[in-house]
Design a protein around this nucleic acid. Structure first.
Lengths: 361, 361
DNA sequence: CTGAAAGCGCTAACAC
DNA sequence: GTGTTAGCGCTTTCAG
């Protein structure tokens, strides 16, 4: 029908045989040159490359995959939302996959729920991939898929059984603990938590870090409010919290929720940070420019993606060798102006409205 | 080496021959069933499906692609940033591609500059795709690639020559004009523009809409300030503009820039919207919860992606038939509280802080 | 409605 | 260092 690779048509695309003929070598030699295999004389290599250039030759990937049994591609299951965290992770994964010499196939699910993940994984398997990345999944319920390629669970422990699996975290619990500790260090008696949906591992992990920080100092653990990551849910939580003047510090599990929360608090007449301190989670750079600039825990998206991919590629290419140890992700708290000592205490100065940092786009 | 599709190994995966044998038919019949071809009796179809189920059969995509000359995949060139607009468009594309029955391959470039796009397109061509989507490119300079598959330029006119190309816009100029008109309608004498980098088509398109609106009413055209889409650049622009009290209305080409701009304005003692009105562009839902909630032009990402893919798939599958006409994208201005009549005029009421809309995550 | 034969373009194994 | 020989698993073409 179309030109490209029609069966009999006067196909314009050249094959390795054409290159071989023009260069006066065998097809296998052409293959050697393109695969950077050793044992090809410099002269032959040059001739082949020239011939290929002239013919505008390009290896046929389908044929390569069929003959070698490897597709040289990695599939990722991601969330079909444009949120900053999800998007950042995807960007990191794309770069890491490309750097590793693989192509990236993407399938998204509306929600990270098991059935959706199963469908997505299945479609990736249909497409043919050498490995799969499952990004930030929900982990309740069963994921009934038979997978025979390595799977990387990014930002969460495995959600289903796979013969060969690897994991890489973003260190959310450590980050959450650091965020909570920061508030406690400021002098707050306790810290409230605006959590993400508890079906999500990522949300539970942050909750755990918060609990750990509180527990380590023997502080009371106020009831948790659960949002859905959206600013709207943060706003709703803020309306609840605003009437309780014993609330002086809140750790929100996401930046957007923190923004909604602050909005509600301020509307209700509670000043941030003078009356209530708020810490977010993610570090979307735009929130350095809202009022007040948001103190937040920066998730090491790129580092996690890079580390995870190192492990996944290892599992794909050297299934027999033991996996190299994982390096722990960096912990970074970005201090701005949404946190301060509680009302009673003398206020320390930190992060000043007059000169917010200037994050790159 | 690994199991899966090893050459001689006791491979666990079944092929169409296995299914054919178990079902007592030929391989071609198995192929017919899986391709939903007509002329297969219901009985045979059922038997084949059962056999396939039992053997956990899954078509080998590489073999399919090799034999048919079609990869059934579409590649997208996107920006390697986590911005709301870019991410939204990618999400829309992913869904549209999947709905069309294709697999999605993604390659990102740091900047949308021609050389990067050329590299990305080339890598997609290497991978083998039936069509390419170039999302929001920069369009200065040459993109020296020979492409022989249809290419969809999304959000911009073609940036390089392709035999078969299609385009779909987001209607940025119309949206920009609506945003500017809104400010003019409010009574502002003129409207300043905080533009995106003019190397970007998307930025120039918005500028054009702003000019059109101004021109239609014979208003003066204040000098344009150029940002780089980031909140930081909007902040810098705001510091410049703040000292000029003749500035009462600004249309920013992106939400993040609008946020930075407002921050600088407020810091300099100019109230928003009482002294200066600001309109953004994109409609990231979180900005309904900052102070003041941002009035903004919503980009029809999903509609554009869907429409663009309809055209692309048509170009792939029916190259001979004329392209169906494009339907224009919807224009939607989201009115919130960052805009008001200029200082001198009586203030109209609109968009109230007490009850911002509750966007879904 | 169904089947037989012939490749798609490449890499793997082995010979030279 | 380089070439030869076989397939990889599917779809296509053409017979029945």
């Amino acid at each position: 029908m179309s030109r490209a690779v029609g069966r009999g048509g006067g196909s314009a695309v050249s094959r390795s045989a054409d290159v071989a003929q023009l260069a006066g070598v065998s097809r296998k030699t052409v293959s050697r040159v393109f695969n950077d295999e050793p044992y090809v004389s410099a002269d032959v290599r040059r001739r082949v490359l020239e011939a290929a250039e002239e013919l505008d030759y390009r290896r046929n990937n389908a044929a390569r995959a069929l003959a070698s049994g490897r597709t040289r591609s990695i599939g990722v299951v991601t969330l079909g939302t444009a949120g900053y965290g999800v998007a950042s992770l995807l960007v990191g994964i794309e770069r890491a996959v490309r750097d590793a010499g693989y192509a990236l196939r993407v399938v998204s699910t509306l929600e990270g729920e098991p059935a959706g993940i199963a469908r997505a994984v299945d479609s990736l398997l249909d497409q043919g991939v050498d490995g799969i990345v499952v990004s930030e999944p929900v982990d309740d319920g069963e994921v009934p898929v038979r997978v025979d390629v390595p799977v990387l669970f990014l930002g969460a422990p495995p959600v289903f059984d796979v013969p060969r699996m690897v994991t890489a975290g973003v260190g959310a619990d450590v980050l959450a603990r650091a965020a909570t500790d920061h508030l406690l260090d400021l002098g707050h008696t306790t810290v409230h938590h605006l959590a993400g949906p508890q079906r999500w591992y990522a949300a539970r992990d942050r909750l755990k870090g918060w609990q750990t920080a509180l527990g380590a100092r023997g502080r009371s653990q106020p009831p948790v409010i659960e949002g859905d990551w959206s600013a709207a849910s943060g706003y709703a939580a803020g309306r609840e919290l605003a009437s309780d003047t014993s609330v002086t510090a809140v750790f929100a599990a996401g930046d957007d929720m923190a923004i909604g929360l602050i909005h509600a608090l301020v509307q209700a007449g509670r000043r941030v940070p003078e009356d209530v301190s708020v810490v977010g989670f993610d570090d979307n750079p735009v929130f350095a420019y809202v009022t007040p600039p948001l103190t937040t825990a920066r998730q090491p998206f790129d580092a996690a993606a890079k580390e995870g991919l190192r492990l996944l590629v290892h599992a794909i290419e050297k299934p027999d060798v033991d996996l190299p140890p994982a390096s722990p992700p960096p912990v970074e708290l970005v201090l701005r102006s949404s946190t301060a000592p509680p009302p009673g205490l003398k206020r320390g100065k930190r992060g000043d409205l007059a000169a917010p940092p200037a994050p790159k786009p």
